[in-house]
Design a protein around this nucleic acid. Sequence first.
DNA 1: GTGAAAGCGCTAACAG
DNA 2: CTGTTAGCGCTTTCAC
Lengths: 367, 367
Amino acid sequence: MRLANDRERETMVMVVVKQEKRLLEATAVGKSERLRRPTIRDVATVAGVSRATVSRVINGGHYVSGDKSAAVNEAIDRLRFSVNHTARNLATRRTGSVAFVISEAQEGLFEDPNFGVLITTCSMEVMRLEGHLVVMAAGEPSSQVHLANYLRAGHVDGALLAPTFRDEPLLDGLAGGDLPIVSFGRPFRYEKEVSWVSVDDHAAVRQIIAYLTSRGHRSIATITGPLNLSGGWWRLEGYREALGPRFRESLVAYGDWSYESGRVGARDLLERHPELDAIFVASDLMAGGAILELRRAGRRVPEDVAVAGFDDSKAAISTEPPLTTMRHPLAQLAREAVRMLFAMIDGQQDGPEHLMLPPELIIRGSA
Amino acid sequence: MRLANDRERETMVMVVVKQEKRLLEATAVGKSERLRRPTIRDVATVAGVSRATVSRVINGGHYVSGDKSAAVNEAIDRLRFSVNHTARNLATRRTGSVAFVISEAQEGLFEDPNFGVLITTCSMEVMRLEGHLVVMAAGEPSSQVHLANYLRAGHVDGALLAPTFRDEPLLDGLAGGDLPIVSFGRPFRYEKEVSWVSVDDHAAVRQIIAYLTSRGHRSIATITGPLNLSGGWWRLEGYREALGPRFRESLVAYGDWSYESGRVGARDLLERHPELDAIFVASDLMAGGAILELRRAGRRVPEDVAVAGFDDSKAAISTEPPLTTMRHPLAQLAREAVRMLFAMIDGQQDGPEHLMLPPELIIRGSA
DNA sequence: GTGAAAGCGCTAACAG
DNA sequence: CTGTTAGCGCTTTCAC
């Protein structure tokens, strides 16, 4: 009895509200006159089933009979229904979105073509898993702290971190918190605590140095990336180890991923070691700059000086000659990172997970 | 009486639910053991007010007395409360997020450093307005149609469109719909119907050509961007108009924004017009390539051939000599685009709005 | 100025 | 397999 009364009341209220709404909409200004989107309630009515059944259908259709399922699907099509993610998220207590955190000052990162592959692949992969990729940028330390708090406040289900610098405060606020995160590149100081994906920089460089050595090169120099970024750091470490006793500080030029720094690096190396016969450059873009400078100095590539790059980005095939380089499996890393993140979000993964993918030697004309 | 009964019932239910929840949490597995986030209900209890009052406070604090307001704020701090956007969005019928749509195949766009400024500035501006910037990429035409439908399905409040190509299907599915959109660059075919922001490419090129002419240059060539992108198209139009009767097809080399196409373009121009004494290049990156090629051909810059770029991106100061160029007010355009979009979303703006910002001539060493 | 309560649209027990 | 119903956390009338 009580129940019946309640339902009556509810129904009455609903009707009134609906009328008011229609009134509102009818008098609304031009553009926004579209009627409200259909809800599962509408679908349920049209299909002649309960809301729960509709919900089941749009969530995989398990435990629903064939005909009911068909009826629901038909109603969905007819009404052009599409689920309201906000409502779903409220009910499931998930936001349905993950952050892509850019910690570096904007300018730098975006000059790197790799970055584009990363963000686009992540976005597509997240969308494939029915989620949203939300880009969040924080340059200065203060806003990084702010961002870390924001992220932890439950506005996103997890976060993907673009390569972070050695001393950035971002990870301090995130590591050990309960927000699932996956870092691109091995995060300094938090390598154990935080999940990450990375190409095996160390092994990659050993491999390419071995290749250069096997081709008879004896005086192999290098141009590094930024050493406060894990890619820059580990590629130099790999070089150092590969050279072993032949390593000398003067064989190292310090770059910052930019084309220009490749040029400057090559020039300096040539000055210090006119006899050098090969250079391993830590990114293709820099390698392009290095080749230019070598040419200017009258060296032929690869006859006089062999040049090997890293990444196999678009830059690798726009040099003359095209670059011999290590392929950086960025798209795959991005997909794996998203997979790892969702596993953590879904609670299928407890502790931190670390994934190191092998690169591949791509032999072209420069070495 | 009826009311009282209802409340009683509600209260009882609440208590039971809460107990169950606590039980659940206590038995939950390790990591996710954190207690649930405080809600406005908790804040209300602690502050000794109603949920409505809390809501008022966190939404501007209007119509709330000083002391209640203070009490609420104190409770908020104490409980480390932060609003649940999902719940708010459900109640307000807004998603709180806007899409940043990348229609181009990923590779291309991300080589453009401009693009980074755009997306980062948009993200920061949207966050400043309490929203989220969701990146959505769609390369092939089929997925573009899919994306257009998705966007219109109400999953976002509006969309910012990265520069679109002349014949992309994306806009066909979006223009005229009821989803607010703002395009970066003047959208072909939809210039009237769709809101957009753009630098005044046409005027910019006239200005820089006037500058070159004033410096005594008589044979001014150009290297264009992609003509199926509005920036590329209008810069060529500006060049054409500025040259007037002196315009000749052979003075035009067609590029694609890439460094390499700048090199090739300069080489071709030099071949066709050995007498040329100036080149207007439609992007700084290409200008860098052009300078390289000119040097190779033995021309001094700017003594023999003046080179002017466009964008004033980082590339402009890493050339030798640094580039004379037109500053592209990208960050400002991004902020204005977000402002326009929110105005449309908030219903403060009806028809499409178009904003063209003037560029600024930056004189450095190359011209 | 403030509180009560009705939703927002969906999911997830819980019965049956 | 299917329907009922109690929330998810917040906003927003509507009274007072």
